[in-house]
Measured scan of single mutants.
Amino acid sequence: MFYPNSPQTSPQLTQIPYGQQYAMMQRQIQQPYHPFATTEPQARLYPYHYQGPIQQEQGGFITQQSTAASPQYVQMRVTPVDQSIMSGYPNQTANGSSSSSFNYNIHPQQQQQQQQQQQQLRHHAMPVGSVPLQDDRYRKQLIVNYLAPDVTSTDLHELFSRFGELDGARIIYDKQTNMSKGYGFVYFCHAEDAKEAVERMSGYEFHGKWLKVGYSTNPLNIVPSNSSPYVHAGSRGAAG
């Protein structure tokens, strides 16, 4: 039997160049792979992502010199942007860049009308829970959420009447099932009393439920100042 490094198959040491006398086997001759043993700084910083320098080929596509990437890492192929796409944008300079302001050559009167329309939209648009300043009635009506099913309009009136005089209180019921929808409205005579009720009743436990109280901004629920107070009856038909 002959071994790869046996004296019968191995040459004389004098015939082997210096430095390879003890590297006779194939696994010894093959050098191990060192990912950080390279002179390129990109490979030292990113050993798993770097795959060699990027070269520009004919046709405008950018390719990489090395083989496919590892399945664990996804390499994105980048193509140059066609400058003709950006030619339609206004205020574009000769080098292809555009300024931040756009001039669509709008007539001054049209621009003024658009600004007025935007101001009107901001004036009428009102986020949930906010209180408008032009109508004091919005500051007097509250919406009470997360009410228990057994709470009546009379219970709601008695709960909030300790903060001040009320114009009314009612629970909203479903017309088909005649069941409470879980929320109601309270109408105060003074805005200061309503503000105190919002601050003190939010998070209050009532009939096993934690109440959420806020201003009601729905104009359909506003009680006119010259109208008669609501009837605080315990029956659902009268309260709904």
Rank of each mutant, 00 (worst) to 15 (best):
Q75G: 14
Q115C: 07
H207D: 01
P53N: 12
Y50E: 10
F163A: 01
Y173T: 08
I222N: 03
N5H: 08
A239E: 08
Q176P: 08
Q21K: 14
Q116V: 09
M24T: 14
Y50Q: 13
Q115V: 09
S161W: 15
H207R: 08
R200Q: 06
Y187K: 00
N91W: 04
P35S: 06
H123T: 05
P47R: 13
Q92T: 08
I171M: 02
Q15E: 06
P127E: 07
Q51W: 03
S66M: 06
N91K: 15
N178Y: 14
N145S: 02
F2T: 14
Q176I: 10
F102Q: 08
Q118M: 06
N221E: 06
T39E: 07
K181N: 07
S100G: 10
G164E: 01
Q51T: 08
Q83K: 14
V81A: 09
A233Y: 15
P219V: 01
P127V: 06
E205Y: 15
A197P: 01
L45I: 14
P224S: 09
H107R: 13
N95S: 06
R27F: 00
Y173G: 02
C189S: 12
A197Y: 00
Y230W: 03
I171L: 07
Y183D: 00
G234Q: 09
L142E: 00
L159Q: 03
Q118G: 11
G240A: 07
E205P: 13
P32M: 03
Q56F: 02
P71Q: 13
S100D: 07
E158H: 09
A239N: 02
Q72I: 03
R162S: 12
Q141A: 00
N178L: 15
P108V: 11
S202F: 15
G234P: 10
S180G: 03
I54P: 14
G208K: 14
D150K: 15
D150A: 11
Q20V: 02
G214Q: 05
P32N: 07
Y183E: 02
N103M: 04
Q12F: 05
H123E: 05
A37V: 13
S130K: 14
V131P: 11
T154F: 04
M201H: 01
Y18L: 07
T14Y: 07
P7G: 08
Y187V: 02
Q119G: 11
S84W: 03
H49Q: 08
S228L: 09
K209V: 01
P229L: 10
Q110Y: 15
I222R: 03
F61N: 12
T177L: 03
A239R: 14
R170P: 00
D136E: 09
K181T: 01
A191P: 14
S235V: 11
Q141E: 02
M24I: 11
P7F: 07
V81G: 12
A94N: 09
Q116N: 11
E205Q: 07
N91E: 06
D150G: 14
V231N: 10
S87T: 08
H124F: 05
D82P: 12
Y215C: 03
N103L: 06
F2N: 10
S6A: 09
G168V: 07
D193F: 15
Y73Q: 13
Y89R: 15
D155V: 11
Y230F: 12
P32T: 07
V198A: 08
Q72E: 07
Q55E: 06
Y18W: 04
S216K: 01
S84I: 05
K181R: 14
P7M: 07
M76G: 15
Q114N: 09
R44N: 06
Y89E: 05
G184E: 00
E158G: 10
Q21R: 15
F188N: 02
V198W: 15
A37H: 15
G52Y: 10
D150Y: 15
K195Y: 15
Q30A: 03
Y104R: 12
D167R: 01
S97E: 04
H123D: 07
G234H: 15
V74T: 15
L166I: 03
H190V: 07
L142N: 00
Q31D: 08
I171Y: 00
T38C: 10
Q28H: 11
P47M: 02
Y3H: 13
I172G: 01
S225G: 05
Y22P: 14
R236C: 10
R200T: 06
R137G: 03
N105S: 06
A238I: 14
Y104V: 06
Y73L: 08
S228T: 06
L142R: 00
Q141R: 01
S130T: 05
M201C: 09
S161Y: 14
L13C: 06
G19C: 04
S66A: 12
Q117W: 13
I172L: 03
L121M: 11
P17W: 03
H49S: 05
R236P: 07
L156S: 00
T217Y: 02
Y215T: 01
E205L: 08
S235P: 14
G96I: 09
Q28S: 06
H190Y: 11
A23E: 12
V213H: 00
S235C: 14
M179I: 11
M201L: 04
V74G: 09
I16C: 09
Y89C: 10
P41W: 12
D135N: 13
Y146C: 02
A148W: 00
V74E: 13
R162Y: 15
W210L: 09
E158F: 14
